[in-house]
């Protein structure tokens, strides 16, 4: 069907003013692959994810989604963005809309899906993620875990080919983390291609086909979870994982 990689980043640079945050990122994600980005706070994980769909414009380099260069001048970035689902740490649901409207807004307005069909799809997804009884609630009536599940459903409603998850459990109470991780595992089992920034090392080790260690805007080391977690090559990676273990998070 598609021999192109799901995602290809080549020499991506990004600065905020003087602060160079991404310093030449090269990264390839194959279809159905799950790649986890780990690295200290401020290493540029969130920025990297935002640059993939050009919500943050990049300074130089190329971003290619399924063979189409989203960074090319002539390409309508909105069209390609619709194939990429992003879920953020802070949910960012639309507070003035019901759950159902949150989920159907983009399919209806960006894809032109008619209302009945959009609502049926949304209903199916909400049911799958145990949210059907919340469809007419407003986000402020939901728990953090429920809000984050709605945010995931909202992204899935666009039928994305690629999902980007940015520390989707970091804003949640510990007892709510598991329900979200279960949802992501489910997506992985179904073959969803995902690029996941996370601090949940146990989870990353479990779910990832590949781990990328990000340090100060560069990918220092990448490989299968067994080798990264048990035999990291780079001293910086060792140091980072050492601190994680000390904190009891691995």
């Amino acid at each position: 069907m598609n021999e192109h990689p799901a995602l290809l980043l080549e020499g991506v640079y990004k600065s905020f003013g003087e602060n160079e945050v991404l310093k030449g990122i090269d990264l390839m994600v194959e279809p159905h692959e799950v790649v986890c980005l780990i690295g200290a706070s401020g290493s540029g994980k969130s920025t990297l994810l935002k640059c993939v769909n050009l919500v943050e414009p990049i300074d130089s380099g190329r971003v290619v989604v399924e063979g189409e260069e989203i960074t090319a001048q002539s390409v309508d970035a909105n069209r390609i963005r619709r194939r990429i689902g992003i879920v953020y740490q802070s949910f960012n649901l639309f507070p003035h809309m019901t759950v159902l409207r949150n989920v159907t807004l983009a399919p209806r307005e960006a894809l032109g899906t008619n209302r009945a069909e959009a609502e049926k799809n949304a209903g199916d997804l909400l049911e799958r993620f145990g949210l059907l009884d919340k469809r007419d609630e407003y986000p402020d009536r939901l728990s953090g875990g429920q809000q984050q599940r709605v945010a995931i459903v909202r992204a899935l409603a666009m039928r994305p080919h690629l999902m980007l998850l940015d520390e989707v459990t970091s804003a949640l109470d510990p007892e709510l983390v598991a329900e979200i991780l279960a949802v992501i595992r489910e997506l992985a089992r179904e073959g969803m291609t995902m690029l996941i920034a996370t601090h949940e090392m146990g989870f990353a080790r479990d779910i990832a086909d590949r781990i990328c260690f990000l340090e100060a805007g560069r990918i220092l080391e990448q490989g299968p979870p067994e080798s990264i977690f048990t035999a990291p090559e780079h001293p910086r990676t060792r140091q980072f994982l050492g601190r994680i273990i000390e904190a009891g998070r691995l």
Partner: peptide, 28 residues
């Protein structure tokens, strides 16, 4: 701004984000 980012990330155009997400909240 994160509301606008969320809308744009879903593939809505700048104008759609303004119309459906930002303005309704602002006017309220």
């Amino acid at each position: 701004e994160s509301q606008n980012v969320a809308a744009r990330s879903l593939g809505l155009t700048r104008w759609q984000s303004l119309r459906f997400v930002v303005l309704p909240q602002a006017i309220r």
